[in-house]
Simulated scan of single mutants.
Amino acid sequence: MAQHAPPARGARLGRAAGANGSVSTVSGVVLLLPGASRWSPGPVRPLARALARAGGTDGLVVHAVLPGRGTNREEDAGWGAEEVVRRYGDVPVCLAGYDAGGRAALRAAGHHAVNSVLALAPSLGRTVSTDSPEPVKQLSGRQVLIVHGTNDAHSDPEASFRLAARAKKANRATCRFEVHSDGHRLRDHQAEVVALSVDFVLGAMLSGRYSRPVTDALAAPPPLGLRMPLASGFGHSLRG
């Protein structure tokens, strides 16, 4: 096995969850990028557990990217992808982030190992400047899912809609779901958010298949595929 690269500015990968055994059994790696505050993890922890349960037997590994003091989250995400390549070889990587981690996942998607991006309530600010908008070119060729609560008072959901609309023009494999009446932590409909996220990640990383709502969202023209409502009870009959 290759030697581990020294962490960038103190970042490190958390303990692996999911697939067990030798490196050769790993078929894909999800890097979880937490939010700005450890006191507000949002759905990251239950998502990690759900992904490990759902994908572990098929070779999916889940790592959290733990930032060091004063680290840049986008750089941490890029370093994490490099570390995955060093540890596991040529396997696909999904960057899955919440809050500031969601923004980092979107921005770091240009790494060659990244095949998919999951951004939960990405912290893009109240507005996206028309003079200097968030970049989207790096999302080309990736499977992209953005999930945002319509009552998010911390990160403007319209900012993520505008980013998704720009990304969709260059990358048809972009969709966005709205969690009606939910806030920034996505706490009121956490089970549905986690189920949607797991469905997307497994489809992007392992099977190439998605549930009907995700398939429809990816195929629908904007704005329909970028304002898909997340149905209450989503996940109870996935892939059925």
Results as ranks from 00 to 15, higher is better:
Ala109Ile: 04
Leu224Thr: 14
Asn115Pro: 02
His236Thr: 15
Asp188Ser: 14
Pro67Asn: 07
Val179Tyr: 11
Arg45Lys: 10
Arg209Val: 09
Tyr210Phe: 14
Val30Arg: 13
Pro229Glu: 09
Val144Ala: 04
Val214Arg: 10
Arg239Ala: 14
His111Pro: 13
Asp76Leu: 04
Gly203Asn: 02
Pro223Val: 05
Trp39Phe: 09
Leu224Val: 12
Ala17Cys: 08
Val179Lys: 06
Leu106Ser: 08
Gly97Phe: 02
Val179Asp: 12
Gly183Lys: 07
Ala217Ser: 04
Ala8Val: 15
Ala19Val: 10
Asp188Leu: 15
Leu31Ala: 02
Gly208Leu: 02
Ala121Phe: 07
Leu218Val: 02
Ser24Ile: 03
His154Phe: 12
Arg185Lys: 09
Pro222Ser: 07
Arg172Phe: 05
Arg53Trp: 09
Gly97Ile: 03
Ala231Gln: 06
Pro213Thr: 03
His180Met: 02
Pro223Cys: 08
Ser181Thr: 14
Lys169Gln: 13
Asn115Gln: 03
Gly78Glu: 15
Leu47Lys: 09
Arg239Ile: 12
Glu82Trp: 14
Glu74Gly: 10
His154Tyr: 12
Ala54Gly: 04
Arg126Ala: 13
Ala119Glu: 01
Ala170Arg: 11
Pro41Val: 04
Arg239Met: 15
Pro92Trp: 02
Trp39Val: 06
Val147Asn: 03
Ser232Thr: 14
Leu218Pro: 00
Asn171Asp: 10
Ala104Val: 01
Arg107Glu: 15
Pro213Asn: 08
Ala109Asn: 08
Ala159Arg: 01
Gly149Leu: 06
Phe234Tyr: 15
Ser123Cys: 06
